[in-house]
Amino acid sequence: MLATDDPLILDLVEWVARGERSHADLMESWRTSCPRLTVWEDAIEHGYLARQGGLIAVTAKGWALLKTSGRRVA
């Protein structure tokens, strides 16, 4: 599951869960110039998010992460 030092991944998954997001929207909102900050790549690698066509979706594993973290997304 998610390490305790990865709160940004949890924030990203929650952000995607709150509304339909395109890949372009995600890249614009979560862009960084820091090569050590790989939130998007880590969320994909861990299986929390996936590309579906032109949209980004929360996976079953991502929904489970939100549930176990106590975050509520309607």
Rank of each mutant, 00 (worst) to 15 (best):
residue 1 M to R: 13
residue 2 L to N: 07
residue 2 L to R: 11
residue 3 A to D: 13
residue 3 A to C: 04
residue 7 P to F: 06
residue 7 P to H: 07
residue 8 L to W: 05
residue 9 I to A: 11
residue 10 L to V: 14
residue 10 L to F: 07
residue 10 L to Y: 03
residue 10 L to T: 13
residue 11 D to E: 08
residue 11 D to K: 12
residue 11 D to Q: 10
residue 14 E to I: 00
residue 14 E to K: 11
residue 15 W to G: 04
residue 15 W to E: 03
residue 15 W to C: 10
residue 16 V to G: 05
residue 17 A to H: 03
residue 17 A to G: 05
residue 19 G to F: 06
residue 19 G to S: 14
residue 20 E to Q: 13
residue 20 E to R: 08
residue 21 R to T: 07
residue 21 R to L: 06
residue 22 S to R: 08
residue 24 A to L: 10
residue 24 A to W: 06
residue 25 D to L: 02
residue 25 D to S: 04
residue 25 D to V: 03
residue 26 L to T: 10
residue 28 E to C: 09
residue 29 S to R: 13
residue 30 W to H: 11
residue 31 R to P: 04
residue 34 C to L: 15
residue 34 C to R: 15
residue 34 C to G: 08
residue 35 P to S: 14
residue 37 L to A: 11
residue 38 T to K: 14
residue 38 T to V: 09
residue 38 T to D: 12
residue 39 V to G: 02
residue 40 W to D: 06
residue 41 E to D: 14
residue 41 E to I: 10
residue 42 D to F: 07
residue 42 D to R: 15
residue 43 A to R: 03
residue 47 G to M: 03
residue 48 Y to N: 07
residue 49 L to G: 04
residue 49 L to C: 06
residue 51 R to C: 02
residue 51 R to I: 01
residue 52 Q to N: 09
residue 53 G to K: 09
residue 53 G to D: 12
residue 55 L to D: 11
residue 56 I to R: 00
residue 56 I to A: 03
residue 58 V to K: 01
residue 58 V to C: 04
residue 59 T to S: 04
residue 60 A to E: 11
residue 60 A to D: 09
residue 61 K to S: 06
residue 62 G to R: 02
residue 62 G to T: 02
residue 63 W to I: 00
residue 63 W to Y: 13
residue 64 A to G: 04
residue 65 L to T: 04
residue 67 K to L: 10
residue 68 T to E: 14
residue 69 S to I: 06
residue 70 G to I: 08
residue 71 R to C: 04
residue 72 R to V: 14
residue 73 V to I: 15
residue 73 V to Y: 01
